[in-house]
Design a binder for these strands. Structure first.
Length: 491
RNA sequence: GGUCUCUUGGCCGAGUGGCUAGGCGCCGGUCUGCAAAACCGCUUACUCCGGUUCGAAUCCGGAAGAGACCUCCA
């Protein structure tokens, strides 16, 4: 392969050559959504980030198995109401089966991922469908002496594990310091240490979702599902594990510990983490009043939004920043991205109709090389987009008949469009007249535009402007161009 | 407080020890009956203070500011 993909490995904190364990196969596991609420911006970022990783690995010719889980088990509210499962609580409030709640939000998640042009994973396992495997893993860890049972729950013994291994290998945390900094606030805990984590949790009476196990009726600990399902579908050691930076500790750290304790080997070769999003410089949170669902984003209904933003605008915006940096959602930034997105798509659409002629001084091969180099360098999508705009400028200059383009240049640009815009970045055209493409609307608009053209030719500008203004009031915008008059719906 | 990350032009946001990313906005222009749109051109920044270097926004040290994670749980 002519490419050498480099990825930033959180485990080593360095960019490393990506060399899969069993080429041409590549295995990737990404932490998916907890399906107890509507999908929001916080879901979009990791989904799009690892969609890019998936797409690029496919583009490079790897046979990729992409596993992204659905977490539908065991979520306690982080508010004061202890001991109730998030899904169970929702179910009780809405008088539904817990699985109905999980299914509803899973469907919602899929719908919005589809709108964002996020490809489906190869396997989408549910935590609830792998309870047996999780019980087996708990037993395995118990057998190795790295966990203890207490009051029907089973806890991972971090201190013991750390004697022979390194708990903190991923997050840089130091167990000795954690012990030193820990103060027992109350004696109620059935854990040996505050940083021990549950791998099996006994269900409280109000907890609806529960399964039988050798220890109690309960549910598996949070970290366990990812360890179990990744091992089941990708093997005990696999290539890439992705997720948001917020999951680095304790989730991923604990995943490593469990897997090493159970299987005696590091589960993951490359850990990739996307950075977080902020909204107007603040972390998104329900308590901060800036919690925006994808539905609200796309229809513009949230009060902090000045307008609706299309799914492709959101995707383009996210791709304009590197995945390891934070990205701040603000109206002005999104509006800028929306315009940039349209300019990019318009130019490449224009390319199709361009008449070829003499070659101009524009190196398409170098542009392509730069785009590849940017992707190879830890998925630098902002750089790819920047270079694509150089092509935009070239295409527009040719379209404006300032310079010309050869057939070779045109073909090469078409290839870049297909490879980079369509396949790798996954940016697609959102047609504005989708609902009006056929039928009565189109016919009527044609007639109105023709009438207005006649008036303009007769210099009856008062009437032609009246038509334009009135249409604008009803949400249809007319634009006079050299080729004639275009129309589009404004929202 | 601990661990880590970040600080780039009006805004967003890449990047490299010397070769002015890119987008949006502004301004100028082309086009147009006008407007809008579209297109072209323009806009030389790197928190502060030291140091290394022929040369640093880029490396090192310090300061200031911002953010994330650090009880339970997912």
């Amino acid at each position: 392969m002519e490419h050498q993909l480099k990825v930033f490995n959180s485990l080593t904190r360095k960019k490393e050559d990506f060399i899969p364990i069993n080429p041409p196969f590549a295995g990737m596991y990404v932490c998916g959504p907890t399906v107890y609420g509507d999908p929001h911006l916080g879901h979009a970022r990791p989904a799009i980030t690892f969609d890019i990783v998936y797409r690029y690995l496919l583009y490079l010719g790897y046979k990729v198995r992409y596993v992204r889980n659905i977490t539908d088990v065991g979520h306690l509210e982080n508010d004061a109401d202890q001991g109730e499962d998030k899904i169970a609580q929702k179910a009780r409030l809405e008088k539904l089966e817990p699985m109905e709640v999980a299914q509803f939000y899973t469907n919602r998640y899929h719908k919005y991922m589809d709108m964002l042009n996020v490809l489906n994973p190869s396997i989408e396992p549910h935590a609830s469908g792998h309870i047996l495997e999780q019980i087996e893993m708990v037993q395995k860890i118990l057998d190795k002496g790295m966990a203890y049972e207490s009051e029907g729950s089973v806890y991972f013994d971090v201190e013991k594990y750390n004697k022979s291994n390194n708990y903190g290998i991923l997050s840089g945390r130091n167990v000795e310091e954690m012990i030193a900094n820990t103060r027992e606030l109350d004696g109620q805990s059935d854990k040996h240490n505050s940083f021990d984590f549950a791998i099996w949790k006994k269900a409280s009476p109000s907890h609806i979702m529960r399964w039988n196990s050798p220890w109690s009726e309960g549910f598996p600990g949070w970290h366990l599902e990812c360890s179990v399902m990744s091992a089941k579908y990708l093997g005990e050691t696999f290539d890439i594990h992705g997720g948001g930076m917020d999951l680095l500790f304790p989730h991923h750290e604990s995943e490593i510990a469990q897997s090493v304790a159970a299987n005696g080997k590091q589960p993951v070769k490359y850990w990739l983490h996307n950075n977080m999003i902020t909204i107007n410089g603040q972390k998104m949170g329900k308590s901060l009043g800036n919690f925006i669902t994808l539905e609200e984003f796309i229809n513009g209904s949230h009060e902090s939004l000045e307008q609706a933003y299309s799914p492709m605008t959101i995707r383009f915006f996210i791709l304009q920043a590197h995945y390891r940096g934070t990205v701040d959602f603000s109206n002005s930034a999104l509006q800028a991205s929306g315009k940039a997105y349209e300019r990019l798509m318009k130019a490449f659409a224009r390319l199709e109709g361009i008449a070829v002629g003499e070659s101009s001084n524009f190196d398409v091969a170098e542009l392509e090389k730069d785009c590849h180099a940017a992707m190879d360098d830890d998925f630098n999508t902002p750089m790819v987009i920047a270079r694509l705009f150089d092509a935009v400028k070239f295409i527009n200059s040719v379209a404006e008949k300032q310079i010309s383009m050869s057939i070779e240049q045109k073909t090469a640009l078409q290839k870049i469009r297909k490879n980079f815009i369509d396949e790798i970045l996954g940016i697609k055209q959102e047609s504005q007249n989708e609902t009006a493409g056929a039928g009565l609307d189109e016919e009527l608009m044609k007639l109105i535009i023709e009438l207005r053209l006649k008036m303009r030719q007769e210099k009856n500008f008062a009437m032609s402007d009246f038509i334009r203004d009135e249409l604008k009031n009803t949400g249809i915008e007319l634009k006079d161009t050299k080729e004639g008059t275009d129309w589009s719906k404004t929202n």
